[in-house]
Design a protein around this nucleic acid. Structure first.
Lengths: 339, 339
DNA sequence: TTCAAAAATGTATGCGCTAACATGTCCGGA
DNA sequence: TCCGGACATGTTAGCGCATACATTTTTGAA
């Protein structure tokens, strides 16, 4: 690219040092540890720094210091406000310590994730945050061998590779289903995510089934639908449920997005909510509070999860011991009009 | 961190070279340009490569080659499926060329954006994608001086710093408003984003006003509301509009999220859509098609925008000339039941 | 057989920075 | 007056790789 030839040469540490009449180390110190350099020297260096418009070369710094300042964040998808908000929390928390996020979107594929872990380790990231999918054995091995801080979100109960932050999907699904049972709905259907590569999907379904069994009911496999995680899939799942011999009275959905899909399908068919069909969601997205009637949902502190994970990473990188390696962020069932 | 001591020393190029009985250059070539190394040498090197589990150090490579392999992506927020999908398209397209995305979330703050640009340039990113906010003069200067490929999304009409991809927000807003006029709705209100730091907000409002003026109507400032970009804000804006002396018959919203907020507020108040209130949105999110009644919206090829931007970056980095520096991805008004 | 050209490989150097240590300077107490 | 030590700064030696060229080996045509 010819543009590069035209752009002015970037000032290096040594250029600044020469102009200020000091050694490179003094400039480096002025930059990173101002306390260790004499006030008048500091002034001189600062002046040259400003004049030359010096910007430190983080690549060179990384090579020399063995710290890239990069944290890998690997998520299954980005088009999910729950995940997006977690990533935002992470980005913000890490930015406080000058760490940058390199993003990987695995599309729920364990193989993709594995490949990303490999290249990110190649990039010498200082830490990794992973969410979502079940990891391949090779992924676990690489992560373990890397020796860097690893934070996993969001399901509790599995044994984490290093650190983890999240809540118990099992307990949350149990509580939500309990609520539907207590309201007297019967039968209660479940619309979940595909179990494949998704431990949360598995645990939520388990929670749902455990609650039914606890109430002396038998889970009906015909009333459990696996679906993609969008509105259309929710509507489609509802249509399927309506063909079942048993007349479904309530649906517990893996996410509010699915629940909204169900909701709209009911509206289209003139099915009254909750009169003829009760609906409960998960995630407590904004839509749960705004949709008419409002949607019962399970609230998790989304942004905080990301923020917390970010802080754990920062602590470990600062050499501090992290006392809580597994952070339970909890959840809260928010009962609204749809149940 | 004691963990680091325990983790096995990573193999370096020179380690592999010694074990294979060749020079480091031969190994480096075997890695990046297999055609230039003899078949039998290749075999030997490959074997050692596998045995040692060598992973190239991308930091060192970056320092030596002056190519970080990183592309900065700066967006105002992530919790917006339009943006999230663009980022996903970008990530995917860049991954094809082995480029990674470093993420910056500017929260619509020009100052934040400026700071991010500075640190990302420090990180020697190979290219930058920016979307959203109006840039500060200093930001423009830095980007221009950097000499690296810059792609801006999503509003056309402003002069881009380098390359741009998107559509004309002005034309799109004009067309949507025209549609409402043709259906005979009067008066037509507008709920937009805050103009501050947002050229798209400005252009959509202009398009709305231009359409009204074109039809011989006078835009009423009382019927233009600026709002945040969530459901709650949409509902709130609707409430404000209902207090106006003029009885609003239609609302054009900056985004489908706002439109959905308006929609729900109407539902709560028993206002018939479109009988008493027509609603048009923007972005054509999935909800537009699923909500009851369905929502008229403006479709933009979200994922393709990101993908296209990614490819432009790849081309430029490959040294190719990009013929279309400004790509118009177009838009399509999708008329549905809400109007 | 001979030699130029092509192919395969090696050598030297340094990217821009930092870690670890070495040096120099100035102070007050014995 | 001398010296130990706190403070300020400089020196040396890479980090792991790639660039540019030098060198060696192989190839094919005269």
């Amino acid at each position: 690219m010819p543009e590069n030839k035209l752009s002015p040469a970037r000032a290096r540490l040594s250029d600044v040092a020469r102009a200020a009449g000091v050694s490179t180390m003094t400039v480096a110190r002025a930059l990173r540890d101002p306390a260790k350099v004499a006030p008048d020297t500091m002034q001189r260096v600062q002046k040259v720094l400003r004049e030359t418009g010096y910007t430190p070369d983080l690549i060179a710094r990384g090579l020399a210091s063995k710290r890239s300042g990069l944290v890998a964040v690997i998520v299954p998808v980005l088009t999910n406000s729950l995940i997006a908000e977690i990533v935002q929390g992470l980005t913000d928390a890490l930015a406080d310590d000058g760490l940058h996020v390199v993003l990987g979107v695995s599309d729920f594929q364990a193989r993709e994730e594995e490949e990303m872990i490999r290249t990110f380790l190649s990039r010498r990231v200082d830490a990794i945050y992973l969410s979502g999918a079940v990891r391949s054995a090779e992924s676990r091995r690489m992560l373990l061998a890397s020796g860097i801080p690893i934070v996993e979100g969001v399901n509790l109960g599995d044994d984490p590779i290093d650190m983890a932050v999240g809540h118990s999907n099992l307990a949350a699904a149990y509580e939500t289903t309990r609520h539907l049972i207590e309201r007297g709905y019967d039968p209660i259907a479940y619309i979940g995510a595909r179990l494949l590569d998704n431990d949360r999907a598995r645990d939520r379904r388990r929670g749902y089934e455990a609650a039914l069994l606890g109430a002396g009911r038998t889970p009906d496999p015909l009333l459990c639908i696996e679906a993609a995680l969008d509105l259309t899939a929710g509507a489609e799942a509802m249509r399927i449920l309506l063909t079942r011999p048993a007349r479904v009275r309530a649906v517990f959905c893996y996410s509010d997005v699915l629940a909204a899909g169900v909701h709209f399908e009911c509206q289209r068919r003139g099915i009254a909510i909750p009169g003829e069909m009760a609906i409960a969601g998960y995630d407590d997205l904004e839509i749960a509070e705004q949709i008419v009637p409002t949607l019962t949902s399970l609230r998790v502190p989304r942004y905080e999860i990301g923020q917390r994970a970010g802080r754990m990473i920062c602590q470990r990188l600062a050499g501090e011991q992290v006392d809580e390696k597994i952070v339970n962020t909890g959840f809260e069932l928010v009962v609204r009009d749809s149940t």
